[in-house]
């Protein structure tokens, strides 16, 4: 794996502060050799700005609540960095999962196993 030097942005789109999931994922990505830039709870324009300034290879969004909030963040990142892949985790009910997947975003709901998430990051950043 050529993960060294690959950079991943991790953000929470909502104002709900459950950090358990995203932190465990961030550590697993770090341990796989990625540089993980955590920005915590961020508005869509903040996610977008960080994805530009930090020149990341992948954006990971932890979402909860309404899918439209995530869709807005995805739209802004897409506009600024169309080439950057996005993956999503968190509380994503089936209807939200379908919507996100239709936008070409990979979705990892609760119960997803870390090796699968890391493998996705490796694939999406072209580090395989």
């Amino acid at each position: 794996m050529k993960t060294a030097g690959k950079r991943i942005l991790m953000a929470k789109t909502g104002l709900d502060g459950h950090w358990r999931g995203p932190t465990v994922v961030a550590k697993a990505l770090r341990d796989a050799g990625f540089e993980v830039i955590m920005i915590g709870m961020a508005r869509p324009e903040e996610v977008m700005q960080a994805s530009i300034d930090e020149d990341v290879d992948l954006v990971g969004l932890n979402i909860g609540g309404h899918v439209d909030v995530a869709v807005r963040a995805i739209g802004m990142v897409r506009e600024a960095r169309p080439e950057v892949p996005i993956f999503v985790g968190g509380v994503v009910p089936p209807h939200a999962k379908r919507k996100l997947e239709s936008l070409g975003v990979e979705v990892y709901p609760p119960g997803s196993q870390l090796p699968d998430i890391v493998a996705a990051a490796v694939r999406l950043t072209g580090a395989a």
Binding site: V36, M38, R43
Partner: peptide, 15 residues
């Protein structure tokens, strides 16, 4: 790898 978390503290300037 690395966890870079400084921005978490800087959200007032995030955008």
């Amino acid at each position: 790898g690395a966890l870079l978390g400084d921005r978490v503290r800087m959200h007032s300037h995030a955008a």
